[in-house]
Simulated assay, not measured.
Amino acid sequence: MRAEDIEKLVNDRRRDLRTGGNFEDALRKEMDQANSTPFTAEIEQAAPPKRFSKPSFTHFKGDSDPESHLKYFKSVMILHKTDDALMCKVFVMTLRGAAQDWFHTLPSGSISSFKELAYVFTKEYTSYRMIKKNPDHLFNLRKKSDESLRDYIKRFKAEKANIVGCDDRIASSAFKKGLPAEHDLYRELTITPSQLWQRSSRPRNAMRSGMMIESPQRSLLSRKISRLNGQAKEAMRRSHPQEDTPAGENYTKFSIPIHQILAQVKDKPWVKRPPPLKGDPDKRDTRKYCAFHGTNGHTTNNCFAWKTHLEELVREGHCTEFIAKQAIQ
């Protein structure tokens, strides 16, 4: 307890004593409650493993999705998930503010496993749970009349990133549906390969039927069709980039390693969390840890998602204090 809390407690009990209460008994009872713990004696007395080093966590303050915090915590503690007592004790260390106060309101000795702790935790903060969206949600997105194509693509990608397991074919259909029918890109995406072939074969068929079309016109039409086809493919590629796209080398030069930049800005509101990594977690390289994803498999300095997001932050005016002087010059 804090010193001011103890002083308040003493003053309150003295006042009770003056009104006829038993000051010593009341004070002893309050102190016993303050020193009690929601954990059972078995968990409370369990010793941590040798050489255990507590990872750094994003704290939960009682105003965000509890399930997301649980998944994040389990991914960081994946190497220690079999140690129930350790999971319980370390999880409590991730709580701050109102969430930490809530934990100490739990009945003494009521938590005997991490499963029980996770249950009461999600039940307490169930009102903050995020409603999981399915791929059909993307069909509700529409490009606004005053919105640029770049902003629409950015907004569409952000919504798609929040949907786990979204099929690219569904995303492509939803992306096209969100465009106005009169938009140039909508018409370009609507052109199927068979339609392109029909267009490209019309001049040849016209010549066979006796309709003389001059060569410059045929050449111009072929070039236009090729350009439309290329633009359509490029637009789809930009709107649905693959996660495993190899990282390029044209990144901004910084004065410190990018994992140190993440450590300093990770709690900023403009830093977005990446979607979970795909693949089997048990097959990842446990010797490498990425603080951006909060899991093993690769290092933070080699994280393509963090490199890309950091470039976006720099373009938006953030993290400029970390840019190397020679890069600015």
Rank of each mutant, 00 (worst) to 15 (best):
residue 152 Y to N: 04
residue 153 I to P: 04
residue 214 E to N: 08
residue 149 L to R: 05
residue 130 M to C: 03
residue 219 S to C: 10
residue 151 D to A: 11
residue 146 D to V: 03
residue 130 M to T: 12
residue 150 R to Q: 08
residue 163 I to Q: 00
residue 172 S to M: 07
residue 212 M to R: 11
residue 130 M to W: 01
residue 159 E to L: 08
residue 212 M to E: 07
residue 227 R to V: 13
residue 178 G to A: 01
residue 163 I to C: 00
residue 171 A to E: 00
residue 219 S to G: 12
residue 151 D to M: 12
residue 205 N to L: 15
residue 156 F to I: 02
residue 151 D to R: 05
residue 199 R to A: 15
residue 193 P to Y: 07
residue 179 L to Q: 01
residue 224 K to H: 14
residue 208 R to D: 10
residue 142 R to N: 06
residue 185 L to Y: 00
residue 159 E to A: 08
residue 126 T to N: 05
residue 199 R to P: 01
residue 141 L to A: 05
residue 185 L to I: 12
residue 134 N to E: 10
residue 144 K to Y: 08
residue 201 S to L: 13
residue 225 I to C: 15
residue 160 K to M: 10
residue 193 P to N: 07
residue 132 K to H: 05
residue 219 S to M: 11
residue 213 I to W: 03
residue 187 R to C: 06
residue 225 I to E: 12
residue 191 I to D: 04
residue 134 N to A: 01
residue 166 C to S: 01
residue 153 I to K: 02
residue 210 G to W: 09
residue 178 G to V: 06
residue 172 S to C: 04
residue 149 L to M: 10
residue 161 A to E: 02
residue 225 I to G: 14
residue 205 N to F: 13
residue 169 R to I: 10
residue 134 N to S: 05
residue 140 N to F: 10
residue 131 I to L: 03
residue 153 I to M: 07
residue 157 K to W: 01
residue 164 V to E: 07
residue 156 F to R: 00
residue 192 T to F: 00
residue 211 M to A: 14
residue 190 T to S: 13
residue 180 P to R: 02
residue 193 P to W: 10
residue 189 L to I: 05
residue 205 N to C: 13
residue 146 D to H: 09
residue 177 K to N: 05
residue 130 M to V: 09
